[in-house]
Design a protein around this nucleic acid. Sequence first.
DNA 1: TATTGTTATACTCTATAACTATA
DNA 2: TATAGTTATAGAGTATAACAATA
Lengths: 160, 160
Amino acid sequence: MGRNKDPETPKELAHFNARIEGIDYDVLDELVGYAVRRAQLSIYEDFAASLGEEDITPQRFSSLVIIENNPGISQTRLSEVMGIARSGVVSIIDRFEAQGLVERQDAGDRRSYQLRLTREGQKQLRRVKKMVKEHDERISGALTPDERVQLCRLLRQLCN
Amino acid sequence: MGRNKDPETPKELAHFNARIEGIDYDVLDELVGYAVRRAQLSIYEDFAASLGEEDITPQRFSSLVIIENNPGISQTRLSEVMGIARSGVVSIIDRFEAQGLVERQDAGDRRSYQLRLTREGQKQLRRVKKMVKEHDERISGALTPDERVQLCRLLRQLCN
DNA sequence: TATTGTTATACTCTATAACTATA
DNA sequence: TATAGTTATAGAGTATAACAATA
């Protein structure tokens, strides 16, 4: 995750503290964009701390969930869903394949593959999904269930 | 910004569409973390489209605002505020300095600098701040003022 | 001709560690 | 000894462009 994996020796770990004492944030405090960015950094940090040993990132996790629930999806389609270039999907899937989590199966069209989770991939995802849910409940722990739903609704409105 | 600057020739621009027709997002739809990430990607894209010609990023913009409102701040302190390593701040400030936007001034302690905006930096920031505010109002345009405040409040609760 | 996956390449961001000059 | 800034280096992540196989 590009972060120090050993919590015993964090020489210069760049921890993100959303609000530092004595600092004037000026207009940043009024921008929805900055509020989202701040939250995202905090969440990412907790994600990394919770799943740092799992060789999983939000990106990789999302990919596995999309493949699980849309079996047979092509790499190009997955790149559209993830919002990244096709070349980026290649290395993601290469790694999943090397780990035995995803299979490239023949499609009718011999230019493309159908992506599917292997049995091992399904097993691992089941386990990781539980960890991600726990992480998500922890970070949104300060919110009531109503507020949580409200927040997701408002965020959805930002994405058009 | 790492994106294609020429809107005339976007061969394979990776646009992020938060919700793609016919795709089952499963658990991703219930995770606060994914909702925030999705929103962040959408916002970043609009930011880049709005300020792509300005050699400014959310990161760089935040730095300028922090320096403006906390004049004399040191690089180490800025690295803490931004949540990045000290070495990262060096190149950010190097660039600002080369552009004549920020000055490294002598501090009492000769190991460190006091960072300040130049007159040109102030002028540029004033201009860019206006553009960022417009961008922010556009992306949160689907929200009422109340919802906007509500959203920022809920996001703040996520950061502890 | 157009599309899918792939490779080559480059750029940005960020981290760690070692260095220097000061304190 | 400790701190501030710097440099060197490396690893993600992502983009573009060109290519082969196939449609």
